[in-house]
Design a protein around this nucleic acid. Structure first.
Length: 467
DNA sequence: TGGGGTTAT
DNA sequence: ATAACCC
């Protein structure tokens, strides 16, 4: 698919190119089996990005949906859709009305309950963790994996004559020529092969397709993963990194530069990546603070030293519901009970215990559409201990706490208009590691008395009716 | 704009 | 507790 050349291709910004002497030094370091620690440019990172994830999960749940234009609906939005639908003009986050207008044959499924998506998402992360334990989740459908060590191991197993037969898997960004004398090219090619194995495993074991991008840092891996879309992969060789970042038409497209920062940059006259690269660092620091300024200016050069941080189990569990209007306390209480019931089931299955509970609201307002308010408090220890122990009613004390938080935020004696309620359980701590024979063991009811009853469903109401 | 998540201040 | 970021 790609030709193996000896000549690196010409490109913009070649002033920064690594010269042959430097490449040889690094090649020698590689042959000596030295992992050049901390040298960010020698890492091998893959970004894995599932194709229209929710729609894929829905098509697995109901195979009759395959081949039809499918949209996943939350409230009045089509949050994602499959490629059949995209071909017919449906876009992500499109209004249901607009989508139906564009595409009357569009099949819609409700995707407000994230349970199956979340479960599949963690199956993907766990599969990737089998390749390397350094896996960082980004949302439900993206993962970064640090392949540096794995690549190093494979490199050591290669004989030097095998190296000349090394080939890339998938696309090479910018059609750049591969130079087998450049150790970083070798490492990235091996990275591309591992990425292909990951995508194969995802398809064979979970039935999911996705894209992958392989590069020397997270920023570049993420940017390059989207170059060939759907179900393809791309590797970025260092000499083309400037081409990649210059391909962005606006700074807002740079991961790490969000809505707010983009607005502030615009006020400074910065709109392109080149604008940001050449802007005075001192002035930028004054405007955005030293931390943001230095970080995003490095990003504009394609530099990103942030590590792939293993996500591990989630830091929090939350459930939210949005609506047109909630204006009474009873109404709010009912919705809060529903959210909490789902959360208790989730936290029960997780096994860890939350020590903090938070209630978040969004008030109706014509202007400030994004603003939320929250109140949180510790969960009393006697309530924590009842969590996951089954028949005790843990709903009542927690709903009481949540309603206190609610009244702390909302003056219920005055008219109010809410458009969102959210409950979050966080500050998760691992189970009592109480061992037999210790004081803790006999003071832990779930261990010394009843047997561990696996999963139990929490009912929202009429808990006194159970059994 | 949905229904989630994370980290920094 | 909020604000920023990510999907």
């Amino acid at each position: 698919m790609e030709q193996l050349g000896v000549e690196p291709e010409e490109e913009a910004g070649r002033d920064e190119e690594e010269d042959a002497a430097q490449a040889m030094e690094r090649a020698e370091a590689g042959e000596a089996g030295v992992v050049p620690e901390g040298s960010s440019s020698s890492r091998v990172i893959v970004h894995v990005d599932l194709d229209c994830f929710y729609a894929q999960v829905e098509m697995i749940s109901n195979p009759e949906l395959k081949g039809k234009p499918l949209g996943v609906q939350q409230k009045y939005l089509v949050v994602t859709c499959n490629y059949e639908a995209r071909k017919l003009g449906v876009k992500k986050l499109m209004n249901v009305r607009d989508a139906k207008e564009k595409c009357p044959q569009l099949v819609l499924v409700n995707g407000e309950d994230l349970t199956r998506y979340r479960e599949m998402s963690y199956k993907v992360t766990e599969l990737l963790e089998e390749f390397s334990p350094i896996v960082e989740r980004l949302g439900f459908d993206e993962n970064f994996v640090d392949l540096t060590e794995m690549v190093e191991k494979r490199l050591q197993q290669h004989q030097s004559d095998e190296l000349s037969a090394l080939t890339v898997s998938g696309h090479v960004y910018n059609n750049q020529c591969i130079n087998l004398h450049d150790i970083m090219h070798i490492r990235l090619l091996i990275g591309s092969q591992i990425a292909a194995e990951m995508r194969e495993a995802m398809y064979n074991q979970l039935g999911l397709t996705g894209c992958a991008g392989v590069a020397s840092n997270k920023l570049l891996a993420k940017l390059v993963s989207g170059v060939f879309k759907p179900n393809q992969q791309t590797v970025l060789l260092p000499q083309s990194s400037q081409v990649l970042i210059q391909s962005l038409s606006h700074v807002k497209e740079m991961p790490g530069i969000g809505y707010k920062t983009a607005k502030r940059l615009e006020a400074l006259g910065i709109s392109s990546v080149h604008d940001l690269q050449t802007f005075s660092p001192k002035i930028l620091e004054k405007e955005l603070g030293i931390s943001v300024a230095q970080r995003i200016q490095k990003l504009s050069f394609g530099e990103d030293t942030s590590p792939v941080t293993p996500s591990g189990p989630p830091q929090s569990f939350s459930e939210e519901d949005s609506f047109k209007k909630c204006s009474s306390e009873v109404e709010a209480k009912n919705k809060i009970e529903e959210l909490l019931a789902s959360l208790l089931n989730r936290v029960c299955q997780d096994g860890r215990k939350p020590h903090t509970i938070r209630l978040t609201i969004r008030r109706y307002s014509s202007e400030n559409h994004c603003s939320r308010e929250s109140r949180q408090c510790p969960i009393p220890s006697h309530v924590i201990q009842k969590l996951g122990t089954g028949n005790c009613d843990v709903m009542t004390p927690m709903v009481d706490i949540l309603m206190k938080l609610f009244r702390n935020m909302v003056n219920v004696k005055m008219p109010f208009h809410l458009t969102l309620l959210s409950v979050c359980l966080c500050n998760l701590k691992v189970l009592n590691t109480a061992k037999k024979g210790t004081i803790d063991y006999y003071l832990t009811p779930s261990l010394s008395t009843t047997s561990r009853s696996g999963k139990r469903s929490f009912k929202m109401k009429d808990s006194h009716m159970e059994d």
